[in-house]
Design a binder for these strands. Structure first.
Length: 290
DNA sequence: CGTTCAACCTGGGCGC
DNA sequence: TGCGCCCAGGTTGAAC
């Protein structure tokens, strides 16, 4: 998503409009009219990403310091530099001056759960700082996962979705990561040994990097699209997500679906055994089993 | 601390 | 065809 916005860097904002009645209260801060006024005339100096958030760096303007536009696309938000799927769900429409790239970009969000905020440096820290977001999944280390989650009692699948522990993993890739790591998604974090965290960290980096390379997962119409409105291809590589009842691509066992933390979870019961390979069986477990 | 539920929204798919 | 459900890539706060 952020890569597709490279063309807006260095461009000046002519106008930012929030189509009437399309933004629910508090999803845009400050309120739309004020935000539109503050953005007009300012230059976009960079596009950053913090976990799942798109962060546009806005150069200082008249009487304003350097600021940041933080966009959370949530379920259905798209950043587009071309015409949207429908005009109906455009939440933000930004016109750009100059040539050498797109003349506008949009935040299009069918369900309208996404948020747009303009913040200063302090606000950015509050919205995207370490207290809010853990290390990025693309580069997360074994030690970081161990420190953040090693003592948690939560099911590992639920824990991987905790953005304060590791930033950027969503529901699709949480299932895919645990498949790659050969770990049952229901396993309590505290039952996992360092070798399992090593596998999870490696799988996280690999699965997310592949998803970025393949430009995301597009499942059905009006789901994720790149900034120039093309579907991604990561869904073609899903090993378990959305494949409940179908055979595992590796072992032919039937992929199972269950709900953890109110989210659909998919896994292969044969490739992801209840007791992860290499796990130490605890004394209490031995007693209980015998 | 962990889990569940509800809320915020639109729309596709399915059973009846 | 129409209705009532269930489901969906996310986050937050309250209740227990």
């Amino acid at each position: 998503m952020c890569r597709g916005l490279a063309g807006i860097v260095g461009r000046r904002i002519v106008s930012a409009t929030f189509p009437r009645g399309r933004v629910r209260p508090l999803s845009v801060r400050p309120v739309a009219a004020l935000l539109a006024r503050r953005l007009a005339g300012r230059v976009i100096t960079a596009v950053h990403r913090r976990g799942k958030r798109v962060v546009l760096e806005i150069a200082a303007g008249v009487g304003r310091p350097r600021e940041w536009v933080v966009i959370e696309p949530r379920m259905t938000g798209l950043m587009l530099v071309v015409d949207p799927p429908t005009g109906e769900h455009v939440r933000l429409d930004v016109r750009l001056a100059g040539g050498g790239g797109p003349s506008r970009f949009l935040f299009w969000d069918r369900r309208g759960l996404g948020t747009i905020r303009l913040v200063d440096d302090r606000g950015l820290e509050a919205a995207c700082g370490a207290a809010k977001l853990g290390p990025d999944g693309l580069v997360v280390s074994t030690a970081e996962l161990l420190v953040a989650l090693g003592r948690s009692r939560r099911a590992v699948k639920v824990a991987l979705l905790d953005q304060r522990a590791v930033a950027g993993i969503g529901n699709i890739y949480a299932s895919e990561i645990l498949y790659r790591a050969a770990i049952d998604p229901r396993t309590s974090c505290r039952r996992l040994r360092p070798e399992h965290w090593q596998r999870i960290a490696a799988a996280t980096r690999r699965v997310l990097a592949e998803a970025v390379r393949l430009e995301g997962s597009s499942i059905g119409d009006e789901t994720y699209r790149t900034a120039d409105s093309r579907p991604g291809r990561a869904q073609l590589r899903h090993r378990v997500y959305g494949r409940g009842g179908r055979p595992c691509r590796t072992c032919r066992a039937t992929i199972e679906r269950l709900v953890l933390g109110q989210r659909s979870t998919f896994f292969c019961p044969r490739c992801q055994p209840r007791r992860p390979r290499g796990a130490t069986i605890r004394v209490a477990e031995v007693v209980r089993l015998s």
